[in-house]
Amino acid sequence: MHTRIGLGFDSHEFEEGKPLFLGGVRIDFPKGLKGHSDGDVLLHALTDAILGAIGEPDIGELFSDKDERWKGVSSELFLKEAIKRMKGKGYELINLDSVLIANEPKIAPYKETIKEKLSKLTGLPVERISIKGKRREGFCQVEGIACICTVLLRVPYEG
């Protein structure tokens, strides 16, 4: 077996009048995240983790915020492209681990729903998906959300 580890990071500040999405789930919160797309920091970090593990360009290169095609789109589209590229290289996702860093909203009430959504998007069993919420505690001066995500991939070794 051949394994690869990927690390992804994303952060966005809050923006009034926009819905909040985390892991493809709409969160009941009065502010969304600034971003060219829907600003879903979890899906952005996960997408970058997968792309990094397989040696592909990052999310900013593939889906530039200068390109109007990606304005306001669901970040699920970016994750689906990363998974397509991952499978095209013969890899399968083994697990994902993520940390959402935010003072608000509280992540705990949404963890299971997010895990179920990520399971549907990635094909991973829910027990191989970890979502953790941590407060900022002085980290970053701007109110918003940051996310760190790691993935483990494997492919049968050939040669």
Rank of each mutant, 00 (worst) to 15 (best):
E81P: 04
K106S: 15
M86R: 00
L43P: 07
G159W: 09
T150W: 12
W70R: 05
E143S: 14
L93Y: 04
E16F: 12
L22W: 07
V41P: 05
S64P: 06
L43F: 14
I59E: 03
T3C: 09
I145F: 11
I50D: 02
R85N: 08
E112R: 12
G52D: 09
G144Y: 06
D40R: 14
E127N: 12
Y91E: 03
G138T: 02
L51D: 02
E92C: 07
E127I: 04
L22C: 00
G8I: 08
R154P: 04
V126A: 03
G24T: 07
K71P: 03
A146K: 13
V73R: 14
K34Q: 13
I107S: 05
A82H: 06
A102W: 10
I129W: 09
K84H: 12
I129N: 00
E92A: 10
K66Q: 13
D65Q: 11
D65V: 14
S98H: 10
S74K: 14
Y110V: 12
L100A: 02
G35Q: 05
I5A: 10
K87Y: 05
L79M: 07
K106I: 13
K115R: 14
P30K: 02
K34T: 08
A45H: 12
I114R: 08
E15K: 13
P109Y: 03
I107D: 03
I107R: 12
A82S: 10
G52E: 01
K106D: 13
E104P: 09
T122N: 05
W70N: 00
G39C: 04
M1Y: 14
D40I: 12
K134M: 13
G32R: 03
I27T: 00
A45D: 01
L33D: 01
G123K: 09
K115Y: 03
G39I: 00
G23D: 07
L33K: 10
L153E: 03
C140E: 07
L121G: 02
K31M: 13
I101F: 11
I131T: 04
N95D: 11
K18L: 07
F14S: 05
E143D: 14
G144M: 09
Y110F: 15
P109G: 00
G90H: 13
P57N: 01
G55R: 07
G23L: 13
V25F: 09
G39N: 02
I101N: 05
C149W: 11
S130P: 00
P19M: 01
E61G: 02
I129L: 06
V126L: 03
V25M: 06
L100T: 04
R135L: 12
S64H: 01
L43Y: 12
L121S: 03
P156F: 12
L62A: 08
K34R: 15
L100P: 12
P57W: 11
F139H: 07
I59C: 08
A53C: 14
I131L: 08
H12K: 12
